[in-house]
Design a binder for these strands. Structure first.
Lengths: 193, 193
DNA sequence: TCCATTCGTTCGCCTTGACGAACCATGGGC
DNA sequence: GCCCATGGTTCGTCAAGGCGAACGAATGGA
């Protein structure tokens, strides 16, 4: 159950309600009217109306067409987001299975489904704070420090990290990355849900 | 076009053909008969048969039910996979936008859509090779070294990496991770397409 | 004020998805 | 040989999705 796009509880009603909400959300995010979106997607305006009102159980072609028109990866139309801040210090965290004297693997983030992630390498020197404007709603960032030290996280509550430390936090709120040591090396995984 | 789950070319026929193939593939992977799968998904055997034969345009509820029964993330039923090996040495790679003297961000992997990724921290000491059996088809692994050195990649053609080096490779083929230096630190992003 | 435009919902019609039962295989067991 | 179980396809029916047109509401000029 850790990773389901397919909740065993995905009972009909919730699913279509979810889709309804998603379509409306994405449509308004694009600033499109029903008529316009329907036209672009090549479906009837009435169909779209019914879908957004929570009635019906669209066919995949219909949903696909909407995905194309809205320019979103389709699966975003069927499951939602949600973020949080999590810190795992070097040495902390449950070590998975094949733990041996010379090899330790720690699960830092267990697959939120249908996310798109960009992976960045960060090389930073101590200096002024690098503040990021919030990204798309639902975005989550994961940071692990490879070397050096850095102050990372939500602007109002950043965390100081050293080698091996990991943090994740909402990317759709203001956040910062400030190197505290020379040649600080980090990986940032930016996850657009 | 870099990331589309929603190819502008997603013309009807291809889509349903794709779904047909996906369903059959996943069903056989589970070793289920049509009758059994239909029963678990709560749909008619005939419906399933038609879907797998490429006829029809299932509703999302139907597809969802199949996703639940097959225990796959639903989106896997609508788009396919494909991998590759890519190495980006420390210092290499296009540096994105806000490049400053004290901060450099390099895009290592640009968002394949609908992927689920687990993030692992690896702490390893020099020792015997850690070989992984191939995971699910379509899996891709991304590795960045934070400290130390390691031999990483496909078993038959691994790559030696140092701090800041990055590699990605198919996870559905045998691959290894062997630390070459003490206190080697790495991040592995395991991506289940 | 009146007309025109746009946005969204509601209303019949027709198509089509989903269902169950009946229908061909195939393959053991006896 | 027979019989029965199992995997898959085809057929006829019914409900539901998708469509276009018609409708009411809100906005904005002239």
């Amino acid at each position: 159950m850790s990773d389901r796009t397919t909740p065993t509880t995905g009972s009909d009603v919730e699913l279509i309600g979810l889709i309804a909400a998603s379509i409306r959300r994405e449509r308004e995010r694009c600033g499109l009217s029903m008529a316009e979106l329907a036209r672009r997607a090549g479906i009837a305006k009435s169909t779209l109306s019914q879908l957004e009102s929570g009635a019906g159980n669209p066919s995949v072609e219909t949903l696909w067409a909407l995905g194309v028109a809205l320019n979103v990866p389709f699966s975003r139309l069927v499951d939602p987001p949600r973020p949080m801040v999590k810190v795992i210090r070097a040495g902390e965290g449950p070590v998975t299975h094949s733990a041996r004297a010379d090899y330790a693997a720690t699960v830092l983030s267990s697959c939120p489904p249908n996310a798109r992630r960009d992976i960045y390498r960060i090389e930073a020197q101590p200096g002024e704070t690098r503040a990021s404007d919030p990204h798309m709603p639902g975005t989550v960032e994961h940071v692990m420090i490879g070397a050096g030290r850095a102050l990372v996280g939500p602007t109002e509550d950043p965390v100081e990290l050293g080698p091996g430390d990991y943090v994740s936090y909402p990317g759709d709120a203001p956040h910062i990355f400030r190197a505290l040591a020379a040649d600080t090396l980090a990986v940032i995984v930016m996850e657009h849900i």
